[in-house]
């Protein structure tokens, strides 16, 4: 005979009665979380509505055309070249910022004398507080004159590299100079994210490596860098988001072009944000709508980048590393 209890052997539903403060906290947390999403969605929707005229006028050409002439009798404009230069500038900025930020973060967490760590950390954080206009002016007035000889030199020595070959010897207002300036603005953000993750490296693992006779550098390579990989990727993505959206510094430095060419040292570049900043004031209704559409594209791009960043950082907290 089967004992009667067996028939009742189903998983039991556990009832929880949350306390009042629990409920309030939950409500608040969910509420604010949802609010962010709602705001984000509303911004997207608003951009979409305002860019409708432009998208209707240009259709898919808006993404595939390089030219930007919305004021002609037959208006024609697209953001392919502008997006291209936006990404190129961001890429140059990151190519400089990522290694420098990793080195900075390592110095701040592992190498700097303890008394120096805190003041240096604040100093790097302070760099993020400098207005981008200042970076832009510095880039234009100081960096550019000093970069031109370097750009000239590198393009003559390495002219077999398509990115460094120029059609005419004019090196001011280039994507390279803009990229260098943007990299300086990205470094503090990257550094602080990477530094946070590095500083969470388990002491036990660091000591394990050192106790086996590792030098400081070998310990960093075997323990700190693998542990911080998620932070490096996340910090870089965050920096990428910042670099893609940087406006005024880029607007000050570049001279806008609407063609796609490989050379980054030659005069001329562009970016979505600087295009909007430079054109918005004088624009008629159609161009305005076109600029909003360009903004929408940038919004989408940074959203994707930041989502990937958040995902990567969240997944790698365990320290077990990420498989990307």
């Amino acid at each position: 005979m089967v004992p009667s209890q067996v028939t009742t052997d189903v998983p039991r539903t556990l009832l929880r009665t949350p306390t009042r403060s629990d409920r309030i906290y939950r409500g608040l947390a969910i509420g604010t979380g949802l609010l962010t999403l709602v705001i984000l969605a509303l911004i997207g929707l608003n951009l979409l509505l305002q860019s409708r005229t432009a998208i209707q006028s240009q259709g898919l050409r808006f993404l595939t055309s390089n030219a930007w002439s919305p004021q002609q009798a037959e208006p024609s404009f697209g953001i392919k070249a502008v997006l291209y230069w936006t990404i190129i500038i961001a890429f140059i900025a990151l190519a400089i910022a990522i290694p420098v930020s990793i080195a900075c973060a390592l110095y701040l967490t592992e190498l700097a004398p303890r008394q120096l760590q805190k003041p240096l950390r604040s100093l790097v954080d302070l760099l993020a507080a400098i207005p981008s206009l200042i970076y832009g002016m510095w880039g234009l007035l100081y960096l550019q004159p000093h970069m031109i000889p370097f750009a000239t030199w590198i393009s003559t020595k390495l002219d077999f590299v398509p990115f460094l070959r120029v059609s005419r010897p004019s090196f001011s207002s280039s994507a390279l100079i803009a990229g260098v300036v943007v990299s300086l603005m990205v470094i503090p953000i990257c550094t602080s994210v990477i530094r946070e993750v590095f500083s969470q490296t388990p002491q036990g693992e660091k000591e394990a490596a050192l106790a086996m006779g590792a030098t400081r550098w070998e310990m960093i390579r075997t323990v700190v860098l693998p542990f911080g990989r998620g932070g490096i990727i996340g910090g870089s993505m965050l920096g990428l988001g910042r670099a893609l959206g940087e406006t005024i510094a880029v607007a000050l430095i570049i001279s806008p072009i609407f063609v796609i060419r490989p050379s980054v040292v030659e005069t001329g570049a562009n970016s979505v944000a600087s295009l909007i900043a430079l054109r918005f004031g004088e624009a008629d209704a159609l161009q305005r709508s076109g600029l909003v559409a360009a903004g929408l594209a940038l919004f989408g791009l940074t959203l994707v980048v930041n989502t990937i960043a958040a995902f990567v950082v969240a997944r790698s907290r365990s320290g077990a590393g990420v498989d990307i």
């Binding site: 036990g204 693992e205 000591e207 394990a208 490596a209 086996m212 006779g213 320290g319 077990a320």
Partner: peptide, 15 residues
């Protein structure tokens, strides 16, 4: 390297 050490808390390299 000549004088190894085993710690109180096990600390293998998790990755």
């Amino acid at each position: 390297a000549r004088i190894g050490m085993v710690f109180q808390k096990p600390n293998p390299f998790p990755a």
